[in-house]
Amino acid sequence: KIRLDVQSAFPLATPSAGENATYFGDRINRLSHGELEVKVYGAGKLVPSLQIFDAVQQGTLDAGMTSPHYVAGRFPAVQFFGGAPFGLDPVRHADWIYNGGGGEIWSEIYEAQGVKTIPCGLMGAESGGWYNFRIESTEDLKGKKIRFAGLAGSVMAKLGASVVLLPLSEVYPGLERGVIDGAEVSMPAIDTLFGLQQVSQYFYLPGWHQPSAMNELIINLNKWDSFDAEQQSLIYETCKAINLSSIMSTETLNAKAVSDFEAAGVEILPFPDTVLNDLRMAFDSVVTEQASKDGDFRRVWDSLQAYRADISAWSDRN
């Protein structure tokens, strides 16, 4: 009987991202005929979410259900797996990772660190963000204080916004009191839990900064090697099942949340095309800068572009 302690980077009650961990524990415990004993811990119970990777790498924690974004400071390249601006739609994102060569580079980067990674938790598009000012042109972003993370944060900064780092718990009061003018948190189903519709006037779509995302199950490599082939495949296939349940779990919830936002008096607006264009151009230059500094970043970006080219005969027309 092998025990596997898994800590989630998200509160277990969070739709999809958090629920995936509970789903994983339930299935493995049931399907492994008692050979594996998974114990799932909620966010922060043992180790802070940002440090899950370190703890797994050192073997103090067996495994984590987390997002590649949490290690962006160490391996900037993996942000593309965790969901990047102007990325693919969810099914193609998964296809790129599973069959298009993306997953191999991902595994390679982590395995050099002694960590096994398994795609585990496919997510749909996020909200384009909450704002208390109208975005009619790129000029409107200049000097505005907004909370945006990761590559998207750099894109916004490039267009003249003043990007603020704010803990998640400070977003609501920050918007309420005008400390910030806008913020990106997650998808509508999760945004609604923070009550952002009560403190924002405008809700923008599409979620250009993250049209899809893949979370991950990371396991200490020694621990992973201690499983036999059947157990390994059980874990791998369970994660594949989770990808489907994860992406399905939020479609209706998102729709309901957006209707609630509307009912609460929030104006739902589309980003103007000119703004989206400028964002895309800013993103391209951010990518070029990063790619010149980091070899893996370039490799992953090239792989993503190659996949795009491979499917373009179909995807451009569909």
Binding site: L46, V47, Q51, A55, T60, L61
Partner: peptide, 13 residues
């Protein structure tokens, strides 16, 4: 004792 490995992570946080 293994759990004590988390403490430094928490301190950094």
């Amino acid at each position: 004792l293994r759990m004590l490995g988390f403490v430094a992570n928490r301190i950094f946080d």
